[in-house]
């Protein structure tokens, strides 16, 4: 194959992969620490997109520096992370930790249904468009094709998020506590770690990341009802491929899916629809615990 095309496939794949990573990383964090699959993640993505789009539209009406738009998106995500963390973790999940893990998934599914309609009640059905930031960064020519720098910046953002999470988990005090909780929740509690607080903070972090995924996508899409449903399955697939709760797994998994998908779109578009599920099924068959999760011992 000609090298130019290969380069284009690689770039397209990285861009799509970083989209996947940003969509899935919040889910991965919560899944890793709290051992639960959080379906409300889809709603958080949608809330992030809606709030960011609304704020961006307002922001571009006043005459403030254009690059402030990025701060607006970040603030929207932070706000949602804290608020949702409090509402969902404190208000709902905390009362269910003693239940079967399936029940918890289903509770988040129910909360997702509710949140989808809350979105409608707040924002109505009209789509929100805020494409201004998309043009802000200009574009770059790669292998003869123009790529917009906003999409390319997603790759950078993903790298930053992944590095910060890795550093936080492996090199900080909080990370050590977190690892203890991940390894053995009960033992950690017995050692005097405030597991409740760690769960709340983790959920806020995961929610923030979910909302950030939505907020950063907002300028590139038409923000409207139903966008949350679409990302859930994608995010689940990435989490399964990477290994439940593994951040490097989610990163590598996203890139693999992204590049494979780009390859399909360029060479055999009929396969596009299946790429992600085929990879997911293959990974589950060959390495059921996911690419990066350690195998767990069975307890008697």
């Amino acid at each position: 194959m000609d090298p130019e095309l290969l380069l284009i496939i690689l770039v397209d794949g990285l861009v799509y992969g970083s989209y996947l990573f940003m969509v899935a990383v919040g889910l991965t964090v919560i899944c890793g620490v709290q051992k639960l699959l959080n379906v409300t993640h889809g709603a958080l993505y949608a809330f992030g997109a809606y709030l960011a789009a609304t704020l961006l539209i307002l922001y571009f009406r006043v005459d403030w520096p254009e690059y402030g738009a990025f701060a607006v998106m970040l603030l929207a995500a932070l706000f949602l992370g804290v608020v949702f963390g409090l509402i969902i973790e404190r208000g709902l999940l905390r009362h269910l930790y003693h239940e079967d893990e399936h029940i918890i998934v289903l509770a988040t599914f129910a909360a997702f249904l509710v949140l989808e309609d809350v979105l409608l009640l707040i924002w109505g059905t009209d789509p929100y468009l805020a494409p201004e930031p998309l043009g802000l960064l200009g574009s770059t020519e790669i292998a003869g094709l123009p790529f917009d720098n906003y999409s390319l910046s997603m790759v950078l953002l993903s790298a930053v998020v992944a590095s910060v999470l890795w550093y936080g988990l492996n090199r900080t005090q909080f990370g050590k506590l977190l690892l203890a909780v991940i390894y053995d929740r009960e033992l950690a509690q017995a050692m005097g770690i405030n597991v409740n607080r760690i769960f709340l903070l983790t959920f806020m972090l995961g929610s923030f990341l979910g909302a950030l995924g939505g907020a950063y996508q907002a300028p590139a899409i038409s923000v409207q009802p139903g966008i949350g449903v679409e990302v859930i399955v994608l995010a689940f697939a990435v989490v399964v491929i990477g290994g439940m709760g593994s951040i490097p797994g989610a990163l590598i998994g996203s890139v693999i899916v992204g590049v494979a998908r780009a390859f399909a779109v360029h060479q055999e578009p009929a396969l596009e629809l299946f790429v992600i599920y085929l990879i997911m099924a293959t990974v589950l068959i060959v390495r059921p615990q996911g690419l990066f999760a350690p195998a767990k011992p069975r307890t008697i």
């Binding site: 789509p127 468009l129 998309l134 917009d148 300028p219 038409s222 966008i227």
Partner: peptide
């Protein structure tokens, strides 16, 4: 719908 709007936003940027 939303697909066309997203496509136009992303295509216009390129």
């Amino acid at each position: 719908g939303g697909d066309l709007e997203a496509f136009i936003a992303q295509g216009s940027a390129r």
